[in-house]
């Protein structure tokens, strides 16, 4: 059983919703990332999505674009991201790490080399924003021989056929993009999210994590009532950006936000922490 599946099973037993923060590797600089990952776990994160910086982040809003630019200014790369995950793993063998990014850095490394290095670094899932399942067969075949789960996105306009396809090809969890737009945009319509999640559940028993537009504890708690996981990205990266010259302040801003979401999620579900 993969570390992701194990984690969702444990959380299910405890009646707890997965809190899944996203930060970009190397933002605002490479030495910030590993302490930040540990701090997020302490503040209540169950799984962490680590963004791999890319020069052309087509699906990201301005907040995460700037995070990518800050990281790239420090020569961050996929290779160095894997090194950071490996460092994190020295002190934490429990918390699943999911890499989130774009396909080209993986193409440049080569699918097989990537799989081997990611596995060796302790990566648990890979979410490649611009690789739909239609283009993923070779990559998925390679991942089968590893403990790495391919995570797919579903969107408000995903058709029934596509939901079935992702349900069959995805592992670990499915990531539901709660609004049409880029990361960090707009406001969530909870009723729409609820309806779409119901539709998705007709076709898959994979855990569902919801992201895009989760800005504060209140939204996180509301989403947590509908899904197995809540992803928070831009709101968290904004905390880093606001205090990028002062690492301890940035850490504090991040952990405050995650703690407040943790409390709100647990209060809403009445789970035993």
């Amino acid at each position: 059983m993969s570390r992701l599946t194990q984690r969702f099973n444990d959380l299910h037993e405890r009646g707890r919703t997965a809190l899944i923060p996203f930060i970009t590797a190397g933002d605002p600089n490479p030495s910030f990332t590993v302490p930040a990952l540990h701090a997020l776990v302490k503040a209540g994160a169950d799984i962490i999505e680590v963004g791999v910086p890319f020069s052309d982040p087509m699906a990201d809003g301005p907040v995460i674009q700037r995070a990518s630019e800050r990281a790239l200014a420090h020569k961050m790369s996929l290779r160095k991201t894997l090194e950071l995950v490996q460092q994190f793993r020295k002190d934490d063998q429990e918390t699943p790490i999911v890499l989130m990014g774009y396909l080209n850095p993986i193409e440049a490394m080569g699918y097989e080399a990537f799989r081997d290095q990611a596995q060796a670094s302790g990566v648990d899932g890979v979410l490649t924003v611009d690789m739909p399942p239609e283009e993923a067969s070779e990559f998925l075949e390679l991942l089968k021989a590893s403990n790495i789960d391919p995570i797919f996105l579903l969107a408000p306009n995903s058709t029934e056929a596509r939901i079935q396809k992702m349900g069959a090809m995805g592992r670990g969890y499915l990531y539901y993009v709660a609004l049409k737009g880029v990361t960090g945009a707009g406001h969530l319509d909870l009723a729409n999210v609820e309806n779409k999640l119901k539709e998705i559940r007709q076709w898959t028993s994979l855990p569902l994590a919801v992201g895009f537009g989760v800005k504060n504890a209140e939204t996180a708690a509301a989403i947590g009532q509908l899904s197995e996981g809540v992803v928070v990205g831009s709101a968290l990266v904004s905390q880093i950006e606001a205090a990028q010259e002062d690492p301890s302040a940035a850490l504090l801003g991040m952990t405050d936000l995650i703690s407040s979401m943790r409390h709100a999620l647990d209060a809403a579900s009445g789970s035993l922490v």
């Binding site: 924003v129 611009d130 739909p132 996105l153 969107a155 306009n157 995903s158 596509r162 993009v177 737009g181």
Partner: peptide, 20 residues
């Protein structure tokens, strides 16, 4: 039919763009 010229081309976009 899926937009490939040999290994090139294809559709590499985020899920929200698949339907449009």
């Amino acid at each position: 039919e899926r937009g490939h010229f040999g290994p090139y081309g294809g559709v590499f976009v985020a899920e929200t763009l698949m339907e449009p």
